[in-house]
Amino acid sequence: MLHISKHNLLSLLTHASSSWQVFCPSKQGSTVNFGWFEGTVDTVAIPVNSCKGAFLPQTEELFTYRGTPETGLSLTGGFDGQKPVLIFFARPCDARALTLLDRVFLEGEYADDRYRSRRARSVVVTVGCKSPLDTCFCTAFGIGPDSKAGSDVFVYEDETSLYFEPLTEGGAGFVAAHLAYLAEGGTPVSVMEELRRAELPLAGRIWVEGMAEMLDSMFDHPVWEKMSARCRGCGACTYLCPTCYCFSVFDAPRGTHGKRYRSWDSCQFSDFMLMAGGHNPRPTRKERVRQRFMHKFNYGVKRQGDYLCVGCGRCIRACSVGLHAASALFDLKEAGR
Protein backbone atom coordinates (compact mmCIF):
# COMPACT_ATOMS: atom_id res chain seq x y z
CA MET A 1 0.00 0.00 0.00
CA LEU A 2 1.24 3.53 -0.70
CA HIS A 3 2.25 5.32 2.42
CA ILE A 4 3.79 8.53 3.67
CA SER A 5 5.81 9.23 6.75
CA LYS A 6 3.90 11.58 9.07
CA HIS A 7 6.81 14.03 8.86
CA ASN A 8 6.15 14.59 5.19
CA LEU A 9 2.44 15.10 5.47
CA LEU A 10 2.65 18.88 5.57
CA SER A 11 4.63 19.01 2.36
CA LEU A 12 2.07 16.79 0.67
CA LEU A 13 -0.74 19.04 1.83
CA THR A 14 1.13 22.17 0.84
CA HIS A 15 1.60 20.71 -2.60
CA ALA A 16 -2.03 19.58 -2.74
CA SER A 17 -3.22 23.04 -1.85
CA SER A 18 -1.99 24.40 -5.17
CA SER A 19 -4.69 22.47 -7.00
CA TRP A 20 -7.16 21.76 -4.23
CA GLN A 21 -8.96 23.71 -1.56
CA VAL A 22 -7.87 21.69 1.42
CA PHE A 23 -10.26 21.41 4.36
CA CYS A 24 -8.56 19.87 7.36
CA PRO A 25 -8.49 19.84 11.14
CA SER A 26 -6.06 22.17 12.85
CA LYS A 27 -5.49 23.47 16.32
CA GLN A 28 -7.22 26.83 16.70
CA GLY A 29 -6.84 28.28 20.13
CA SER A 30 -8.01 25.73 22.64
CA THR A 31 -9.81 23.42 20.23
CA VAL A 32 -9.16 21.51 17.04
CA ASN A 33 -11.47 22.63 14.26
CA PHE A 34 -12.01 21.81 10.63
CA GLY A 35 -11.15 24.72 8.39
CA TRP A 36 -9.34 25.72 5.22
CA PHE A 37 -5.71 24.70 5.30
CA GLU A 38 -3.43 27.45 6.48
CA GLY A 39 -0.19 25.62 6.90
CA THR A 40 -0.99 23.38 9.86
CA VAL A 41 -2.88 20.16 10.28
CA ASP A 42 -3.86 18.10 13.30
CA THR A 43 -4.23 14.44 12.53
CA VAL A 44 -4.89 13.26 16.05
CA ALA A 45 -7.92 15.01 17.51
CA ILE A 46 -11.44 14.60 16.24
CA PRO A 47 -12.42 18.21 15.46
CA VAL A 48 -15.25 19.86 17.36
CA ASN A 49 -17.00 20.84 14.15
CA SER A 50 -17.74 18.71 11.11
CA CYS A 51 -16.52 19.13 7.56
CA LYS A 52 -19.95 20.08 6.19
CA GLY A 53 -18.77 23.68 5.98
CA ALA A 54 -16.61 22.81 3.01
CA PHE A 55 -19.75 22.14 0.98
CA LEU A 56 -22.34 24.16 2.83
CA PRO A 57 -20.38 27.14 4.16
CA GLN A 58 -21.81 28.75 7.25
CA THR A 59 -22.34 31.90 5.24
CA GLU A 60 -22.15 32.16 1.50
CA GLU A 61 -22.95 34.89 -0.93
CA LEU A 62 -25.69 34.02 -3.38
CA PHE A 63 -25.31 37.17 -5.43
CA THR A 64 -24.28 40.79 -5.38
CA TYR A 65 -26.75 43.33 -6.65
CA ARG A 66 -26.38 46.84 -7.91
CA GLY A 67 -29.12 49.39 -8.25
CA THR A 68 -32.51 49.65 -6.59
CA PRO A 69 -35.95 48.29 -7.39
CA GLU A 70 -36.89 51.83 -8.44
CA THR A 71 -33.96 52.55 -10.76
CA GLY A 72 -33.28 49.07 -12.06
CA LEU A 73 -31.11 46.23 -10.88
CA SER A 74 -28.39 43.90 -11.94
CA LEU A 75 -27.43 40.69 -10.19
CA THR A 76 -24.10 39.00 -10.39
CA GLY A 77 -23.89 35.46 -9.08
CA GLY A 78 -20.85 35.07 -6.89
CA PHE A 79 -20.14 31.50 -7.85
CA ASP A 80 -17.78 30.16 -10.44
CA GLY A 81 -15.48 27.22 -10.88
CA GLN A 82 -13.24 27.07 -7.86
CA LYS A 83 -10.58 24.53 -7.07
CA PRO A 84 -12.01 21.17 -6.07
CA VAL A 85 -12.37 20.46 -2.38
CA LEU A 86 -10.09 18.01 -0.63
CA ILE A 87 -11.27 16.89 2.77
CA PHE A 88 -8.15 15.72 4.41
CA PHE A 89 -8.96 13.52 7.29
CA ALA A 90 -12.59 13.13 7.59
CA ARG A 91 -13.60 10.45 10.06
CA PRO A 92 -15.80 7.58 8.92
CA CYS A 93 -18.79 9.34 10.52
CA ASP A 94 -18.01 12.55 8.62
CA ALA A 95 -17.76 10.73 5.33
CA ARG A 96 -21.00 8.90 5.93
CA ALA A 97 -22.65 12.19 6.94
CA LEU A 98 -21.71 13.68 3.59
CA THR A 99 -23.62 10.92 1.84
CA LEU A 100 -26.67 11.93 3.90
CA LEU A 101 -26.26 15.60 3.05
CA ASP A 102 -25.99 14.51 -0.58
CA ARG A 103 -29.45 13.02 -0.32
CA VAL A 104 -30.80 16.33 0.91
CA PHE A 105 -29.01 18.61 -1.51
CA LEU A 106 -28.67 16.49 -4.62
CA GLU A 107 -31.77 14.32 -4.70
CA GLY A 108 -35.37 15.17 -5.33
CA GLU A 109 -36.88 17.63 -7.72
CA TYR A 110 -34.30 20.32 -7.06
CA ALA A 111 -30.57 19.91 -6.74
CA ASP A 112 -28.54 22.58 -5.05
CA ASP A 113 -26.16 23.90 -7.69
CA ARG A 114 -23.60 25.28 -5.26
CA TYR A 115 -23.47 22.22 -3.09
CA ARG A 116 -23.31 20.05 -6.18
CA SER A 117 -20.46 21.84 -7.85
CA ARG A 118 -18.39 21.76 -4.67
CA ARG A 119 -19.22 18.17 -4.01
CA ALA A 120 -18.93 16.83 -7.52
CA ARG A 121 -15.17 17.21 -7.81
CA SER A 122 -14.37 16.71 -4.16
CA VAL A 123 -12.15 14.03 -2.72
CA VAL A 124 -12.79 12.81 0.80
CA VAL A 125 -9.80 11.30 2.52
CA THR A 126 -10.86 9.49 5.67
CA VAL A 127 -8.71 8.21 8.46
CA GLY A 128 -9.71 5.19 10.50
CA CYS A 129 -10.38 5.96 14.17
CA LYS A 130 -7.87 4.22 16.31
CA SER A 131 -8.98 5.90 19.49
CA PRO A 132 -12.67 6.67 19.44
CA LEU A 133 -13.82 9.11 22.10
CA ASP A 134 -16.20 8.51 24.96
CA THR A 135 -18.73 10.40 22.86
CA CYS A 136 -18.53 8.22 19.74
CA PHE A 137 -21.44 5.92 18.94
CA CYS A 138 -21.23 5.53 15.19
CA THR A 139 -21.62 1.75 15.45
CA ALA A 140 -25.22 2.33 16.46
CA PHE A 141 -25.77 3.53 12.90
CA GLY A 142 -24.10 0.62 11.18
CA ILE A 143 -20.76 2.26 10.63
CA GLY A 144 -17.57 2.02 12.62
CA PRO A 145 -13.96 3.11 12.93
CA ASP A 146 -13.07 1.38 9.65
CA SER A 147 -16.15 2.24 7.55
CA LYS A 148 -15.52 3.43 4.07
CA ALA A 149 -18.93 4.74 3.01
CA GLY A 150 -18.58 8.18 1.48
CA SER A 151 -14.79 8.12 1.36
CA ASP A 152 -12.61 8.35 -1.73
CA VAL A 153 -9.40 7.39 0.02
CA PHE A 154 -9.10 5.51 3.27
CA VAL A 155 -6.08 6.07 5.47
CA TYR A 156 -4.61 3.68 8.00
CA GLU A 157 -2.42 5.30 10.57
CA ASP A 158 0.35 3.59 12.49
CA GLU A 159 2.96 5.19 14.73
CA THR A 160 5.05 6.62 11.93
CA SER A 161 3.14 6.45 8.69
CA LEU A 162 -0.14 6.92 6.92
CA TYR A 163 -1.22 4.25 4.43
CA PHE A 164 -3.45 5.33 1.57
CA GLU A 165 -6.07 3.03 0.13
CA PRO A 166 -7.85 4.64 -2.83
CA LEU A 167 -11.49 3.61 -3.04
CA THR A 168 -12.87 5.58 -5.97
CA GLU A 169 -11.66 7.00 -9.24
CA GLY A 170 -11.41 10.42 -7.66
CA GLY A 171 -9.43 8.99 -4.80
CA ALA A 172 -7.09 7.17 -7.17
CA GLY A 173 -6.60 10.44 -9.04
CA PHE A 174 -5.65 12.21 -5.86
CA VAL A 175 -3.20 9.51 -4.89
CA ALA A 176 -1.73 9.42 -8.41
CA ALA A 177 -1.16 13.18 -8.29
CA HIS A 178 0.91 12.84 -5.13
CA LEU A 179 3.01 9.81 -5.93
CA ALA A 180 6.13 11.87 -5.44
CA TYR A 181 5.35 11.98 -1.73
CA LEU A 182 4.32 8.37 -1.31
CA ALA A 183 6.36 5.26 -0.92
CA GLU A 184 5.28 1.78 -2.01
CA GLY A 185 5.10 -1.20 0.25
CA GLY A 186 3.60 -2.74 3.34
CA THR A 187 0.08 -3.38 4.49
CA PRO A 188 -0.88 -2.05 7.91
CA VAL A 189 -2.51 -5.32 8.94
CA SER A 190 -2.31 -4.70 12.64
CA VAL A 191 -3.95 -1.28 12.25
CA MET A 192 -6.68 -2.82 10.15
CA GLU A 193 -7.20 -5.42 12.80
CA GLU A 194 -7.22 -2.81 15.55
CA LEU A 195 -9.87 -0.77 13.73
CA ARG A 196 -12.01 -3.82 13.21
CA ARG A 197 -11.91 -4.63 16.88
CA ALA A 198 -12.27 -1.11 18.24
CA GLU A 199 -15.11 -1.01 20.70
CA LEU A 200 -17.18 2.04 21.36
CA PRO A 201 -18.10 2.64 24.97
CA LEU A 202 -21.57 3.95 24.16
CA ALA A 203 -22.52 1.24 21.72
CA GLY A 204 -24.21 -0.93 24.31
CA ARG A 205 -26.34 1.92 25.65
CA ILE A 206 -27.67 3.30 22.42
CA TRP A 207 -30.28 1.59 20.41
CA VAL A 208 -31.74 2.70 17.12
CA GLU A 209 -33.38 -0.40 15.75
CA GLY A 210 -37.07 0.30 15.33
CA MET A 211 -36.63 3.83 16.68
CA ALA A 212 -38.22 5.47 13.64
CA GLU A 213 -41.33 3.29 13.88
CA MET A 214 -41.57 3.78 17.61
CA LEU A 215 -41.45 7.54 17.21
CA ASP A 216 -44.41 7.43 14.84
CA SER A 217 -46.64 7.22 17.87
CA MET A 218 -44.63 9.38 20.24
CA PHE A 219 -45.26 12.86 18.86
CA ASP A 220 -47.43 13.76 21.83
CA HIS A 221 -45.44 11.85 24.43
CA PRO A 222 -44.62 13.72 27.67
CA VAL A 223 -40.95 12.77 27.31
CA TRP A 224 -40.38 15.75 25.01
CA GLU A 225 -41.36 18.15 27.73
CA LYS A 226 -39.02 16.51 30.19
CA MET A 227 -36.12 16.24 27.80
CA SER A 228 -36.35 19.77 26.52
CA ALA A 229 -36.68 21.50 29.89
CA ARG A 230 -32.92 21.92 30.13
CA CYS A 231 -32.31 23.07 26.57
CA ARG A 232 -30.86 26.55 26.28
CA GLY A 233 -32.11 27.06 22.78
CA CYS A 234 -28.73 27.80 21.28
CA GLY A 235 -27.44 26.53 17.97
CA ALA A 236 -24.38 24.70 19.23
CA CYS A 237 -25.68 21.18 18.64
CA THR A 238 -27.09 21.79 15.20
CA TYR A 239 -24.23 23.93 13.94
CA LEU A 240 -21.67 21.34 14.85
CA CYS A 241 -23.70 18.40 13.64
CA PRO A 242 -22.47 17.00 10.32
CA THR A 243 -25.98 16.20 9.14
CA CYS A 244 -27.87 19.33 10.17
CA TYR A 245 -28.34 21.58 7.21
CA CYS A 246 -31.05 24.21 7.89
CA PHE A 247 -30.30 27.60 6.45
CA SER A 248 -31.89 30.96 5.90
CA VAL A 249 -31.60 33.46 3.10
CA PHE A 250 -31.27 37.17 3.74
CA ASP A 251 -30.13 40.41 2.18
CA ALA A 252 -27.44 42.75 3.40
CA PRO A 253 -28.00 46.10 1.70
CA ARG A 254 -25.44 48.89 1.58
CA GLY A 255 -27.08 51.82 -0.13
CA THR A 256 -27.44 51.04 -3.80
CA HIS A 257 -25.68 47.75 -3.72
CA GLY A 258 -25.54 44.77 -1.48
CA LYS A 259 -25.54 41.03 -1.25
CA ARG A 260 -27.91 38.19 -0.69
CA TYR A 261 -26.52 35.49 1.53
CA ARG A 262 -27.48 32.17 2.85
CA SER A 263 -26.33 31.16 6.30
CA TRP A 264 -26.83 28.21 8.57
CA ASP A 265 -29.82 28.55 10.82
CA SER A 266 -30.99 26.38 13.66
CA CYS A 267 -34.37 24.87 14.39
CA GLN A 268 -33.47 25.34 18.06
CA PHE A 269 -33.67 29.13 17.83
CA SER A 270 -36.92 30.53 19.18
CA ASP A 271 -37.68 32.60 16.06
CA PHE A 272 -36.86 29.89 13.54
CA MET A 273 -40.51 29.41 12.68
CA LEU A 274 -41.86 32.79 13.72
CA MET A 275 -44.17 33.95 10.95
CA ALA A 276 -45.33 37.37 9.88
CA GLY A 277 -48.18 38.29 12.20
CA GLY A 278 -46.63 36.54 15.20
CA HIS A 279 -47.80 32.95 14.77
CA ASN A 280 -45.16 30.42 15.78
CA PRO A 281 -45.98 26.76 15.19
CA ARG A 282 -43.12 25.75 17.50
CA PRO A 283 -43.50 28.23 20.31
CA THR A 284 -41.58 26.50 23.09
CA ARG A 285 -38.45 24.44 23.59
CA LYS A 286 -40.55 21.32 23.64
CA GLU A 287 -41.63 21.65 20.02
CA ARG A 288 -38.19 22.72 18.93
CA VAL A 289 -36.32 19.90 20.61
CA ARG A 290 -38.91 17.45 19.34
CA GLN A 291 -38.38 18.78 15.83
CA ARG A 292 -34.65 18.22 16.05
CA PHE A 293 -34.86 14.63 17.14
CA MET A 294 -37.91 13.73 15.09
CA HIS A 295 -36.10 15.12 12.07
CA LYS A 296 -33.08 12.93 12.77
CA PHE A 297 -34.80 9.76 13.84
CA ASN A 298 -38.15 9.75 12.12
CA TYR A 299 -38.71 12.32 9.36
CA GLY A 300 -35.25 11.67 7.92
CA VAL A 301 -35.94 7.97 7.67
CA LYS A 302 -39.16 8.67 5.81
CA ARG A 303 -37.67 11.27 3.53
CA GLN A 304 -34.03 10.42 3.03
CA GLY A 305 -34.37 6.75 3.79
CA ASP A 306 -32.06 6.75 6.79
CA TYR A 307 -31.41 8.18 10.22
CA LEU A 308 -29.98 11.66 9.88
CA CYS A 309 -27.41 10.98 12.54
CA VAL A 310 -24.12 9.19 12.27
CA GLY A 311 -23.28 8.94 15.94
CA CYS A 312 -20.30 11.25 15.71
CA GLY A 313 -20.95 12.61 19.19
CA ARG A 314 -20.34 16.23 18.24
CA CYS A 315 -23.59 17.31 19.78
CA ILE A 316 -22.54 15.57 22.98
CA ARG A 317 -19.41 17.64 23.13
CA ALA A 318 -21.18 20.81 22.05
CA CYS A 319 -24.08 20.91 24.44
CA SER A 320 -23.40 22.60 27.74
CA VAL A 321 -26.38 20.95 29.40
CA GLY A 322 -26.11 17.36 28.24
CA LEU A 323 -28.97 17.24 25.75
CA HIS A 324 -27.80 15.35 22.68
CA ALA A 325 -28.52 12.55 20.26
CA ALA A 326 -27.23 9.89 22.64
CA SER A 327 -29.20 11.10 25.65
CA ALA A 328 -32.25 11.53 23.45
CA LEU A 329 -32.03 8.04 21.99
CA PHE A 330 -31.63 6.68 25.48
CA ASP A 331 -34.53 8.66 26.96
CA LEU A 332 -36.80 7.97 24.00
CA LYS A 333 -36.15 4.29 24.23
CA GLU A 334 -36.97 4.31 27.94
CA ALA A 335 -40.10 6.37 27.33
CA GLY A 336 -41.32 4.30 24.40
CA ARG A 337 -41.03 0.94 26.10
Binding site: E109, Y110, F247, S248, V249, R262, D265, M273, M275, P281
Partner: peptide
Protein backbone atom coordinates in the same frame (compact mmCIF):
# COMPACT_ATOMS: atom_id res chain seq x y z
CA UNK B 1 -48.89 28.33 5.04
CA UNK B 2 -45.67 27.88 6.99
CA UNK B 3 -42.58 29.99 7.21
CA UNK B 4 -40.35 29.52 4.21
CA UNK B 5 -36.87 30.46 3.16
CA UNK B 6 -35.82 28.39 0.17
CA UNK B 7 -39.02 27.11 -1.39
CA UNK B 8 -37.24 24.03 -2.71
CA UNK B 9 -37.17 21.63 0.21
CA UNK B 10 -33.62 22.36 1.29
CA UNK B 11 -33.63 24.90 4.09
CA UNK B 12 -35.40 22.61 6.55
CA UNK B 13 -37.92 25.26 7.43
Amino acid sequence: ELKMQCGVGKCGR
